[in-house]
Amino acid sequence: MRLFAVSDLHLGHEANREAMDDIRARPDDWLILAGDVAEKNDHIRFAFEHFGRKFKRLAWVPGNHELWTRPGTKIARGVDRYEELVSLAREYDVLTPEDAYPVLDLTDGPVRLCPLFLLYDYSFRPDDIRLEDAVAWARESGVLCSDEFFLSPRPFSSRGEWCRARVETTRTRLDALDDDLPTVLVSHWPLRRDVARTPRVPRFSIWCGTVETEEWHRRYRARAVVSGHIHIPSSRLIDGVRFEEVSFGYPKQWQGRRPHPDLAVREIVPE
């Protein structure tokens, strides 16, 4: 079997939903959906049903868009929203960050697949910018992430506090792994600051991860690290580890940079 990944499908856009028909079936292989599948549950269900028919099994991690809740709506917020999404995924037997990390027997050997939900804490900022000034510093360049309005951290006091709790919980689980198998670490937000660079909007980096995970690729024997969020697909080696940014993107992005939607689906740790 093989392992594939794609993120940032943004299925609220009709053109993106239509493009999913062009992603070919791989019934013997797994697919990672690395966050920002959609904002509405109906579109998330569409993804789980559509790709569940095309792949042997799906693994999913949330992005910020899945966690968005608009003021005045009755939808669950914060941790309750995340738990609602986990329950939705389990209806379709989709692997989530709350499930045991499975061992996959890939064509070139076994790996442990580790879906992670970590968020961000504004630490991807210059050393001379204080935490409390980070958002204002980003706004000086005309950048403001919609998370500031739509991503509730309830019951935590801030997204940074929620991030710290997620990092601590996840680190404990990873430290408890009792074998030396290589891992595939999957997070919507990049694990390293150098992977989170967005040249056109460099100050957007504060919404892209946490420095607490900078060394996790080495600490947890990663064969590959999969992420999305920044909408700049790339594949690079860092310390001998493959870092794969697998964003599909908004229609105006993918329609202009790839000849066929299926090319967005990236094989992870190929032979």
Rank of each mutant, 00 (worst) to 15 (best):
R166Q: 14
E245T: 08
F117T: 08
Y120I: 12
D127R: 12
L31C: 12
M1Y: 06
W137N: 03
V143S: 14
A134W: 07
F204I: 15
H231A: 02
G256N: 10
G228E: 11
D108A: 15
R192S: 01
S227G: 07
A165M: 04
K56A: 09
D28N: 07
G228V: 10
T213I: 02
S157V: 14
A76D: 07
E39Q: 04
H50R: 11
D178F: 02
A59D: 09
V103F: 09
T172L: 15
I206C: 01
R90L: 09
D121S: 02
R258W: 09
R57T: 06
T198M: 14
E168C: 14
Q253A: 12
E245G: 11
D99I: 03
T198A: 14
F243R: 04
S158W: 09
L118Q: 02
T172N: 09
Q253Y: 15
A38E: 09
A19T: 11
E148A: 09
S234K: 03
P251A: 13
V225F: 07
V61E: 03
E18I: 15
K40C: 13
V201T: 15
A76G: 10
P190L: 08
P190G: 05
F46W: 04
H260R: 03
W216Q: 02
E245H: 05
V61K: 07
I268E: 01
D28Y: 13
S235K: 09
D239F: 12
I129R: 05
T210V: 06
G256P: 13
W30P: 06
H10K: 11
D128I: 09
T170K: 05
R166F: 14
E39R: 06
P251F: 10
E66L: 00
R193T: 04
P199Q: 04
R90V: 02
A224S: 07
L119D: 15
F117A: 13
